[in-house]
Structures are given as C-alpha cells and as structure tokens.
Design a protein around this nucleic acid. Structure first.
Length: 573
DNA sequence: GCCGTTTTCGGCCCGACTGTTTTCAGTCG
C-alpha cells in the first residue's frame, strides 16, 4: 500500500463515520467503508493506475461515483464532500467511535444535546454529571464510559500473532480440560493467521452453553468480565487481550466456525450468496425455510452455496469467492512443504547458538538444508563478519558438512546494502558462498525514490540473491522504510533476484498483500526464519502463514525445492 | 453508493447481550 492509498482510505473512512453519525443510508456508509478497504489493501498506487489510464471501476466496490472521488483526491488532495461534512460536524467527533459503547446514535445524541465534539469534551460531560441526564445513559453506561475514557489514553494496539498464540492456546487448553466441552477452536483473525489480531474469538461446542460460559469466566487470567450470557461471553485478560467466547451445539459447529472465523466481508459475501440461493445462513446452520440443510462442517456450508472449501487464510474478501467459483483457488503452501531454511544466524554474529547446534536443530525438524547467513561487517552492533572471519566460518562449515550427516549446511551471509547500493563484502569472498542474502540495516530515512534506487543498484551486483525483510517494518514499532515495492519486485524479476518473507513474528515482511503482489508479478519468495537461536527456527511457521495469506502455492516458494533444484535458481554468475 | 443465477431498480447478513426499558434500541462482532 502506498501513502497515497492510505490517505484515500482514511478520507473514505472518516466520511463513512460522519455520514453514519448523521444517520445516512447505512448501505451508503458501507459502500464507503468497502471502498476504503479495497484501496487500503491494494498493493499498487491508485494514483499510478489513474496516470496509466486504468479504469478504477473495475475494482470491487468502486463505481463511477467513488472512482470520481478518488480522482478528486489524487488531483486536488481534497475530497469536497468530506470538507463539507467536516464543516457540519467537528472533525474530532469520529474519535468518539473508538470508545466501546459509543456508536453513531449515541455520538449524535451527545453532540446534539451537549455539544460534545471530542474526547476531551466527552470527558468533561462525564465528570460534570451532564451526561447522566441524557436519555439512554443510565448510571452503568456513564460509569463504563468513564472507565473507557481513562483506558483510552494508552490507545488500542493490535496484538502480534505470536502473542495471541501464547494467550489463546493456553486458554483453549484450559477449556479443553473440561470433558463436558466438545470442541474448542480459536477462530477469528487468529485462525485466518493475520499478522496481528484485535481480539481472540473462541468457539466451543456443548449442549449446555451456560456451563461453558461459567468455566470460561472462572479462568484465572481474567481481569474483567465484560459480558456473559448463555451462549456467549466477553472477557479481558490481565494481558489486556479481549477474548470472545461463543458456544453452540455440535450440529452447528461448522456454521459457527465459519461465522466466527470471518472475515466480515467474506461472511457477508457468503450470506448474500445464500440469499441468492434462497437460503438463510447464520451461526447455527444453513436454512431452507425452517429446515437446517447444512452446518455440521464448514465444507457443508460452502457446498450449500455451490462452492468448494475455502481455506481460512484466503477468507478476506480479496477475490477468493470468485476464484472458488471458477475453480482457480490456489493449492496453498504448507509447513510440511518446506525443505530447508535460507536465513539463520549463529553466535558468530548476533545469534545464540553454534553452527553445529543450528544444523542439528534444523535436521531434527526434517530439513534437508540450512543456510548460515550471519551479518556482515557494517552491522557492527550485531558483531558482523569481515572477510577474514567469514572465510574461517566457511572452512568450519566444510568441516561440519563432513561431520554431520543428513543435512547440508549452506554457505551464506546477510550482507548489508550500503547507502550507495554497494554490498558490504567484496566479490572475492561472496564468490565462495552458495548464495547471498542482502538487507538494508541503515539509513532508513532516505527518500523513497533514493531508497528504491539503492536497493535496485544492489541487485545489479551478480551476487545478490535474496532481499531480506524487504520493507523493514517492525510491527507496532515502526513502518517500513519508504520504498516503491512494485518497482523493486519488477527489478528483481528482471535480474533473477528473489525476495524474502521474513518469519520473525515482529517482522512478517513481506506481508500478505505484498507477497501476493510478488506472486502476481512472477517473483518467487523465500520463507525464512531469520532464526537467532535453535528455538527460533520454529518461527518459520509464521512465515508460512503469511505466504498462505498471499495465495502462495509450493511452486511459488523457493525453499520447497530440493537444494539441487534451488541452486540453479539462485545461480546468476 | 454498489451491483445483477429474480435485477439497470430495489435490494443490500444476521443474531446476542446490555442497559434502560416496560417491549426495545443501540452496539458489537
């Protein structure tokens, strides 16, 4: 996604928010939200598409009107309708929708009745007791809102998938200890393996929902029970993670799992499809009139609307339903397809383990090869290797390859791309490696055009093999350095270079949308753990997750191949 | 505002929980 796209999506989302507060047609509001999502997830810049004379109405959810509005933003930097709305209602009003319990109706009410137009003003209305006089705001509502305002200061953060896994699997295990509970599955964006999740959604089956809810709210790690009924409950864990539980009967398991896995756009599309088939789909099943005709498994639900099973990672409303209709769903890469790891560190640079320990751990995972790719000299903070030290490491790898059976240790290095696009190690030593991983570790602030040039210039070096963590983003910490990723991918294609999906949980770089862009352009990707210890080799799984979300099949991934085949792909000299 | 396996007009997914209500609106997922 480019900055321009983000700006357009932001404008549409703001507009949707304001229109909703005004009580506009909810479907019109939805149209703006859908369009915002479409634009935000587009890997290409809509400005470029316009410049190339492409028809934006070909994009899903973009019609003549919204295409014209995009054009207006691109050309003028403004959206007149948004400006107009913001004259009617204060800009800061949309901040209120971040508070739980504050929907459009209540926002409009506090604005019209009390003149509240911002979080600060709402806080004053709560503190002064004015809010309590409003219809619909009883003592509990006011108290909850006060609490929400106090907590809001910290701001909501998305939870990294790896952290969600720790919290969610422990809670699921706790529920599974109760033998009266049938199945326990973590659904939601966790099951879709999104790089970050907003909250955890847990589905359980039981004929007695109330009992499951009782056990759920008794979980020791709970800080606060937000709601609890006989079929659902919401709690906040001590870690701050919100968990929603939903209980259904076994016969509804598939329908409920489908519903609770989402995504929302995917579910809406499937339900609309159901309506077209004369069916009603909800979390209890697929119904023809009063009769349930499907719902025990997810496959049944899809079959009922004439579709093959769609993997959770694809359920983002990004064309998966159309692909399923035309039998063009990809056969997704799986962890079991991975034959080796192409990016790992040792204690020679900033890793924890020796080459031998790393190799044995990789062998234990069933890998056929493991590349040792320690940092190069420029990354002093990670104790990067100079030619002399790397040369010694290569000799040791030769020795270990003779000694350790059943795995091949590949000679590599994570070589810095210097500010001018030169590689940080001389050709003489790079010649002796099996392949070279290249990465940017400095000067993140270069202007996008320069940063892009820098990387492409590095690719001109015949030793350049795989671009590691291509955008440099760190989840929740920093955005990527500004680059024109599409240009870089095209440059890689021309030169026979590759890009990486870095599986470190705080990186996941390339992400799903970017990975799909690479696939569409025709550049294969490495899925690499970038492990800094033997335990971190397991991170590769998170890379596979993102690859699946990027629609990648085994043939799109470098390290699904045996080394003999891979070697030919990586060879450029 | 979008869009077409009933369609170029008239639809647009569906249900649970809470709080403040005397039967339901608002919010959320």
């Amino acid at each position: 996604m480019t900055a321009r796209n983000a700006e357009i999506a932001e404008a549409f989302n703001r507009l949707a928010e304001l229109l909703e507060i005004e009580g506009a047609n909810p479907f019109r509001v939805r149209a703006y939200r859908n369009a915002a999502r479409t634009v935000a997830e587009l890997p290409r810049s809509v400005a470029d598409m316009l410049a190339a004379g492409e028809d934006l109405t070909a994009l899903p959810g973009i019609g003549d009107d919204l295409a014209a509005k995009i054009r207006e933003i691109v050309n003028s930097g403004h959206l007149s309708l948004l400006d107009e709305e913001q004259r009617k209602l204060p800009k800061s009003l949309v901040e209120l929708s971040a508070l739980p319990g504050m929907g459009p109706k209540r926002i409009k009410l506090v604005h019209d009745q009390l003149g509240v137009g911002s979080l600060a003003q709402l806080r004053r209305a709560v503190d002064s007791g004015k809010l309590a006089g409003l219809p619909g705001f009883g003592p509990k509502s006011v108290e909850k809102l006060g609490e929400a305002l106090r907590q809001h200061v910290a701001g909501p953060r998305r939870i990294k998938l790896v952290d969600a896994a720790d919290a969610g699997e422990a809670l699921a295990a706790y529920l599974r200890q109760d033998r009266s509970i049938g199945r326990v599955e973590i659904a939601g964006s966790y099951r879709r393996r999104k790089d970050t999740i907003g909250d955890l959604d847990i589905l359980a089956t039981s004929p007695e929902g109330g009992k499951v809810v009782q056990r759920f709210v008794a979980y020791p790690e709970i800080a606060k029970v937000v709601s609890k009924g006989t079929t659902r409950s919401t709690v906040i864990l001590r870690s701050g993670i919100q968990v929603d539980l939903r209980v259904v009967e076994e016969a509804s398991y598939g329908a409920a799992l489908h519903y609770f896995t989402g995504s929302k756009p995917h579910n809406i599309a499937i339900r609309e499809r159901g309506v077209a088939h004369g069916l009603k789909i909800n979390e209890y099943g697929v119904f023809k009139g009063e009769r349930r005709i499907a719902g025990r498994t997810e496959a049944e639900v899809y079959r009922a609307v004439g579709l093959p099973y769609i993997e959770p990672e694809l359920r983002e409303g990004r064309g998966e339903i159309e692909a399923a209709e035309t039998k063009r769903l990809p056969h997704l890469v799986a962890l079991a397809d991975i034959r080796g790891d192409l990016h790992a560190h040792t204690n020679a640079s900033d890793g924890r383990n020796t080459i031998a320990e790393m190799a044995k751990a990789a062998k234990a995972k069933g890998y056929a090869y493991l590349a040792i790719s320690d940092h190069s000299q420029h990354t002093t903070i990670a104790h990067g290797l100079n030619p002399r030290r790397l040369s010694r490491q290569l000799a040791e790898i030769d020795r270990l390859n003779d000694e350790i059976e059943g795995i091949r240790i590949l000679k590599s290095a994570e070589v810095d791309i210097l500010g001018d696009g030169q590689l940080d190690l001389p050709d003489a030593i790079l010649d002796r490696l099996d392949f070279v991983v290249c990465a940017v570790h400095s000067q993140f602030g270069l202007a996008p055009a320069k940063q892009t040039e820098r990387i492409i210039r590095a690719m001109d070096n015949r030793h350049f093999g795989i671009l590691a963590h291509p955008t440099g983003r760190l989840i929740n910490e920093r955005p990527g350095y500004g680059i024109d990723l599409e240009r870089i991918i095209r440059a890689a294609k021309e030169r026979g270079c590759f890009l990486e999906i870095n599986a470190q949980p705080e990186r996941l770089d390339l992400d799903d949308v970017q990975g799909r862009l690479a696939k569409d352009i025709g550049v294969k990707l490495a899925i690499s753990s970038d492990a800094h210890s033997t335990a971190q080799l397991d991170f590769l799984r998170y890379g596979v997750d993102q690859a699946r979300r990027a629609w990648l099949a085994p043939e799109d991934v470098l390290n699904t191949r045996p080394w003999d085949e891979l070697r030919k792909l990586l060879m450029r000299r």
